[in-house]
């Protein structure tokens, strides 16, 4: 098994004709947690959208190899089956679709992609219960519509619950700390840490040091104006905290 899980080479990407990413190079090895920090408008969310295959984000040059595959050739659902998970900065509300039905469709599709039979109803409900407990979601959430009327903290917990259900190899947490109080931040971080193994990697996108006190990165990148302008260890987090992004 190749040690490198994700390799981004010379990535340029545009949204509505405007170039946002201007040459990103990034290598993530299995087991590593990378933090991507940067000011507003640096391209952090664009990077996560491009990795997840969001329509409307055009890659104008460069390549992304994920687990030996050409990622840019894959549809969003194929990327999910391949083991990529994006925790949304603003999770989408889907009134009329319950969390149970939503996750059943997702888990069944993942199993089908692996050539496995759908889980039995009982097996699926047990899995739901186990993973909901991980982020302290009450059982009644299973019957609620996806994110509809959820508080900010509930939405983020629901994201990590979905991550636990789908068991990704690469998790991308896009500003998962935004809108969270200290308790919710701890619950969400504990969930993420509990799911981390030596084979799995994560990209943690954030403005602030706060989340990185809980989810400790191996490598830290500073993204500014669509480029990675600095890469280092945890010491970079302190420098940013003390001196801001201007110095980069």
């Amino acid at each position: 098994m190749n040690d490198i899980l994700l390799e981004i080479k010379g990535l340029h990407a545009s949204v509505e004709g405007k170039e946002i990413l201007r040459g990103i190079d990034l290598v993530i090895r299995r087991g590593e947690i990378h933090a991507v920090m940067g000011p507003n408008g640096a391209g952090k969310s664009t990077l996560s959208a491009v990795l997840a295959g969001k329509p409307g984000y055009e890659v104008t040059s460069g390549e992304i190899v994920f687990d030996g595959k050409d990622l840019l050739e894959l549809s969003p659902e194929e990327r999910s089956w391949a083991g990529i998970f994006l925790s949304f900065q603003y999770p989408i509300e889907i009134p009329g679709v319950t969390i149970t039905n939503f996750m059943k469709a997702a888990v069944d599709a993942h199993r089908k992609a692996k050539g496995e039979e759908p889980l039995s109803a009982g097996g699926f409900l047990r899995l739901m219960k186990e993973k909901m407990a991980l982020v302290q979601m009450k059982g009644e959430f299973a019957k609620r519509d996806v994110n509809a009327g959820f508080s900010g903290g509930e939405k983020k917990r629901c994201e990590i619950f979905q991550m636990a259900m789908l068991d990704p190899v690469l998790s991308i947490l896009d500003e998962t700390d935004s809108g969270l109080d200290v308790d919710a931040l701890r619950i969400v971080s504990d969930g993420v840490n509990a799911l981390h193994t030596p084979e799995k990697s994560a990209i943690v996108i954030t403005h602030y040091k706060r989340l990185l006190d809980y989810i400790v990165p191996d490598v830290v990148h500073v993204l500014k104006a669509g480029k990675i302008v600095a890469t280092g260890g945890r010491e970079l987090v302190e420098i940013i905290e003390n001196e801001g992004y201007d110095k980069f």
Binding site: G53, K54, P76, R79, F88, A106, A109
Partner: peptide
Amino acid sequence: EQFYMRSRGIP
């Protein structure tokens, strides 16, 4: 909504 669902592997 569609992208959200697809990002979870729902075709």
